[in-house]
Design a protein around this nucleic acid. Structure first.
Lengths: 252, 252
DNA sequence: AAAGCGGGTTGACACAGATCAAAAGGGTAC
DNA sequence: GTACCCTTTTGATCTGTGTCAACCCGCTTT
């Protein structure tokens, strides 16, 4: 009931497959951004191979030694932290082109779990070697720093959300964020499939699953979206945006 | 009343002063950690000079072009983000040896404000040059990555706090965190002076200032701490820690 | 095709924390 | 040294979200 134990009894590692940044249609979103062809070859060389995960499988777990960072090639992930007393906080959802695993750099031990929310593929990027290569390729080095910084900025946004917003504002921000990221990947900005449960959304947004469900229903009643289980259709994105910037509102 | 406008009408930049990592008693906490003497000299060279700030002065503001990251040499800072509709979220408090400004790397524009909460001194580290140097000094490069990763992990902790904890748990976590950081700097683990207001603590913890005040009072009534305005004395750290790990509690 | 079950919705009620209000304390500026 | 204002404390009340519970829907499994 509670700790929501996903039983991946058999943590099968699907055999690696060859990947190549230069052939990847995500290269503009991902680490190789801005690299010359020859530099991209060197990065390809380093990355070597990928890994496939089934829905529910862990990419890594809190406590596991850090060795790689991962680029999501396809699929959808969540990351979460949990404390000894059983609290569980989803810290993010990652989609194609996004980087996972940077939490492990500081202590060489991962501090969160990364779980595939659907069948997924990632590229394995050995971090020590990435550091070596990035000290030779300025563009790569700088881009790595940007990726890490972007994660910090994103986290600040989540803090803002958790610290100052009310339930419906949080959900609105969540939907707009997903919409924008799907758009950047060439998918519909207004129609998409949620890969996560209401409980996972709630954990991310600091709400209980019932509150998430009620907010979805209310949005639907108000004609902002249409919800059918995990299928979302955004009907009135302007009014959703307006939820986040109340004309005047509670300030003062 | 509301937006709490600190009027630094005259953003005087106090003239720079020479700094040297090799002479700094914070070097074990700061960027130069683990560097050889000669490498530290090169870092010294790059850093050049520092900057003094009066209480209330901004080190940088959201929207300002990014050029430096900053190491706190002495004093105390807060960082906060604010949205166009006036929401304000404190994202962190920084003390000696900690690094500020990494939010600016990703877009070359700072996304948050950094304000001195007491008279303070920082070292200015030009980021482009730091990248150049770090591509030559493996230890420095790796340590920079660790510092950024540590920030990400810290942010996850704040998300956990904001997403799952109740008011008194948040305050307990906050006090323990401060205590631990003061300890690491050679100050008393049990007695310290808060540099920030109840409102700033509240913003950081996602609570209203009245709630923070009440929680302090309750801790005092329960004999956990003694509070006198901004002066805090921790009386029973074990019971404060116990607040964070309820023996069983609300799970399930 | 049926059964079982995890995930989702909805309702009733409880409560933690927000809000509103007032007063006191202490630090700062003059 | 004094006055003022910001900060803090405390009380009373309100409300958004959590909690508990029941039911339903639609997969997945067999």
């Amino acid at each position: 009931m509670h700790a929501n134990v996903k039983q991946n009894v058999v943590p099968l590692i699907t055999p690696g497959f060859k990947v190549a940044c230069s052939q990847c249609n995500l290269r503009e979103l991902c680490l190789p951004f801005g690299l010359s062809d020859s530099d991209m070859d060197r990065l390809d060389n380093l990355i070597g191979c990928g890994r496939k995960l089934k829905r529910g499988q862990h990419l890594y777990r809190a406590g596991a030694p850090f060795e790689f960072i991962y680029a999501v090639k396809s699929g959808f992930f969540k990351t979460d932290v949990l404390t000894e007393d059983g609290r569980d906080q989803v810290t993010g959802f990652q989609m194609a082109g996004e980087i996972l695993g940077m939490d492990g750099i500081s202590t060489e031990i991962h501090t969160c779990n990364a779980v595939a929310l659907e069948d997924s593929e990632v590229c394995l990027i050995p971090f020590t070697e990435l550091e070596m290569l990035s000290s030779e390729i300025r563009t790569l080095q700088h881009h790595l720093h940007k990726v890490m910084s972007r994660e910090i900025v994103r986290d600040h946004g989540v803090m803002m959300l958790l610290g100052t917003m009310r339930a419906e504002e949080r959900l609105a921000a969540f939907l707009l964020n997903l919409s924008q990221r799907f758009t950047a990947r060439g998918y519909s900005p207004t129609e998409f499939h949620l890969r996560m449960t209401r409980e996972e959304i709630g954990s991310y947004l600091g709400l209980k699953l019932e509150t998430v469900s009620r907010a979805f229903s209310r949005f639907q009643d108000d004609g902002l979206i249409s919800v059918q289980q995990k299928h979302i259709r955004i009907m009135d994105i302007l009014r959703i945006k307006a939820l986040l910037a109340p004309p005047d509102g509670r300030i003062g």
